[in-house]
Nucleic acid binder design. Structure first.
Lengths: 184, 184
DNA sequence: GGCTCCATGTAAGGAGTTACATGATTCA
DNA sequence: TGAATCATGTAACTCCTTACATGGAGCC
């Protein structure tokens, strides 16, 4: 089992694997709809633009992970894409495989900036932290809302993921509160 | 003030800004030492390879943010790099500027994967989550250690940043614990 | 003398971004 | 009829990665 997982994974990048898993989850769909789903993602830093999604789907089709067929009833040239059995196996292999680095703290632009706060004058730091907290609070509110919507519409797994984002935001807030006291 | 910040920032990418701020913080140093500092970063997904750091420093030198001079006493052709006044201003502007998106949840590969857990058979999910928790726990232990070292060696700001990473890891753990109960 | 570290850099290639280009469908 | 949305795609560009190439310095 573990050995076939290695073969099935086929060196997918995170983005490729994520798109593939999304198509497996959603069933037959269009490249356009996949892109839209990504756009609604909570983290705007990770979105699939047209210039990345279409070549990516082309690549995965060539590799036999996706199949495409024209939708006859649509004059726009819509293509219906779907994961092949190999594609489904690749997505599952990606999910089953837990690389070591995955445990590492996620890259956080706020934490990155904090590393260099002694480059600023001490009295400047307080207001900056205040703004970071405000931005985080706003995101937390939004996230809680989305989580409840998901839960209400029966999307339990997605709700669980969003709940994770919310938990992380609250943790960031309590950390920033601690940081703030150092610059007060 | 706010208007000059806009000019001073000069569309730096996160990596450029981060390297610049690092050089400002550390004072005169070599490209090599900057790269090493990055390698020690807690998040392995964000590291500056030779192929990125040298061109990047070249670019910023051309833009007048860094100055370079040969170290005479070194036959290896070492260059000492240092931030120019404009470079220092750019780093400070980057730190002062708090873009809206910064409040968003950070991209987390674990959370990404969780979105697609219904692609796996339910009985497969438990063990995967267990491995994710183990990886996170390991990272948390390491992080706590580094935080204490930093604190002991008087690097208070860095310790505060690492403390943030640690807080986030603990939050992720408690969230994963909640997730686990859904698949038990 | 040889190993490891310090130190700089280039070349080829991959992947993503922005901006552009095109056209059908749907709805007010 | 016009605007918004659906839908596909390309072109130029930027940035980063991997792998390679080179050589001095320090130490045992």
């Amino acid at each position: 089992m573990a050995s076939t997982d290695m073969e099935d994974r086929k060196n997918l990048t995170e983005l490729e694997a994520c798109v593939l898993a999304l198509i497996v989850r959603e069933g037959p769909c269009t490249a356009y709809s996949t892109r839209k789903q990504f756009e609604e993602s909570l983290t705007s830093t990770w979105h699939a633009s047209t210039g990345s999604i279409y070549p990516l789907i082309r690549r995965m089709t060539d590799r036999g992970l996706l199949s495409r067929r024209d939708v006859e009833s649509d004059g726009r040239g819509s293509k219906e894409i779907e994961a092949t059995p190999a594609g489904r196996r690749a997505a599952q292999a990606w999910l089953r495989d837990v690389p070591d680095w995955i445990g590492e703290p996620a890259a956080d632009p706020i934490r990155t900036r904090l590393n260099f706060f002694n480059v600023l004058a001490p009295e400047e730091c307080g207001p900056v932290i205040e703004r970071m907290m405000a931005a985080t609070r706003a995101a937390a509110t939004r996230t809680a809302l989305i989580r409840d919507q998901m839960k209400a519409s029966g999307k339990t797994v997605e709700a669980l993921a969003v709940s994770g984002a919310h938990t992380m935001l609250l943790a960031r807030l309590s950390w920033l509160e601690e940081v703030r006291t150092c610059y007060a």
